[in-house]
Design a protein around this nucleic acid. Sequence first.
DNA 1: TCGGCATCGTGATTCGTTTCACAAGCGAAC
DNA 2: GTTCGCTTGTGAAACGAATCACGATGCCGA
Lengths: 204, 204
Amino acid sequence: MPKATVERLPLYLQCLQAMGDVESTVSSEELANTAGVNSANVRKDLSYLGSHGVRGVGYNRLELCTQLRRALGLIEKWSVVIVGVGNLGSALAKYRGFDASGFNVVGLYDADPAKLGHPVDGHYVKSMDDLELDIKEHDVSMAILTTPAAAAQSVADLLIEAGIRSILNFAPSLLKVPDEINCRQVDLATELQILSYYQAAGRA
Amino acid sequence: MPKATVERLPLYLQCLQAMGDVESTVSSEELANTAGVNSANVRKDLSYLGSHGVRGVGYNRLELCTQLRRALGLIEKWSVVIVGVGNLGSALAKYRGFDASGFNVVGLYDADPAKLGHPVDGHYVKSMDDLELDIKEHDVSMAILTTPAAAAQSVADLLIEAGIRSILNFAPSLLKVPDEINCRQVDLATELQILSYYQAAGRA
DNA sequence: TCGGCATCGTGATTCGTTTCACAAGCGAAC
DNA sequence: GTTCGCTTGTGAAACGAATCACGATGCCGA
Ligand SMILES: NC(=O)c1ccc[n+]([C@@H]2O[C@H](COP(=O)([O-])OP(=O)(O)OC[C@H]3O[C@@H](n4cnc5c(N)ncnc54)[C@H](O)[C@@H]3O)[C@@H](O)[C@H]2O)c1
Ligand SMILES: NC(=O)c1ccc[n+]([C@@H]2O[C@H](COP(=O)([O-])OP(=O)(O)OC[C@H]3O[C@@H](n4cnc5c(N)ncnc54)[C@H](O)[C@@H]3O)[C@@H](O)[C@H]2O)c1
């Protein structure tokens, strides 16, 4: 499946869920409008799911949701750990929306002894020493990385060593990871800088 | 300038800054390696800056930084407001890294009366009623939106009405904005779902 | 001063993605 | 049962971006 398609699937899912239960069927045109893309693009994307829409009618909304979830691997619930329980890490830990999307935060870890045992949203912050065993024991394969940039690479190495297969990294630091490890970078400063470009350019 | 290029410029800037002051000159190959892209791609990107590297030598690191900042519109410092001072909003408010990237948080706003006047990192949370005047008075043109999804669109309308030209939206809700408004979406659940796809697929 | 080497800048090429356009298919109405 | 209108699925075309390949060019050492 094309990379570009994969990156749109969550968007479709979100749009479909936001539609409420009123509509039982949805056309590519309709979905395209709410998602802000071209309707042919929607149809081509959905065709990769082996999805069978009904000509003249559209797609069954609930069935399509299920197919999207299956394609995204969201049928099973993923266990996730958060490493680096500072400002951002605790905000993420408190976020209720992950559950709804198919993820379950099972542990918070920090290197700072002052933070250990401190409760954050029902979880107690644990030591980095517990990380490896917890990951192996609970078969955790995803991690959210919110340490300072300087620590990010070494923590990532640790996580991979412990068996983590996917990392969502918020530290502004490019991680060097093996090919078989999935890694995505979320960089807020970068986003603002891109906005800055367009705003500065638009004014010129 | 191609969209794809614009989205890489902040990355280059970040890499160059991370190199420390040791190197005064850097080749496209070197930058490409640290940024994880192809060196021809780097050269083509930089050529849009009218940047003049020196054949046989490379680019002057500091000069290149300056050119990148200029191209991104980071010579001037942008004032930013944060609307929705909950978990995520306060984490962002406390973040020190924005200053370094060329942004200055000048105000925090929330609709919840219980939050008003509460101090977050030197700023007092203000009422939504103050928003419009503050934006106009201080010539603020960028906003970070961290309200619940249900409120996002109406808050965005308000911001645009008040004169905001760029919005960084964290709420999982597609904003409908006029063409001349720059808007970027950061959706953490989406990121995790994309990771989920690759992890589930890789295992198959 | 000159030659060789490293690296840039960029036309040509390849690749992936988006968009177009339309035949095929389905349901509803009569 | 037949017609009509709507929507899908998909080949073909257009587009944009990444990569290749190499000529042009500046530096440095002999
Ligand atoms: N806070 C934001 O809004 C924001 C915005 C953009 C980017 N970021 C990035 O996200 C990361 C976290 O930001 P923050 O504001 O939460 O910082 P923070 O300093 O509040 O939190 C970092 C946490 O990581 C822990 N830590 C440090 N080294 C560690 C290690 N080796 N192993 C485990 N834990 C370790 C610290 O004890 C601390 O609790 C940073 O890289 C920052 O650049 C944050
Ligand atoms: N916290 C996270 O880690 C996280 C992760 C992913 C996405 N998000 C999204 O970011 C947004 C904020 O998340 P959060 O966890 O900080 O939520 P939160 O509930 O802690 O904070 C939301 C804040 O917005 C304020 N608010 C509500 N309506 C408002 C309005 N009309 N005008 C101004 N302010 C208003 C509330 O008073 C509250 O302070 C949500 O849309 C959430 O889906 C958050």
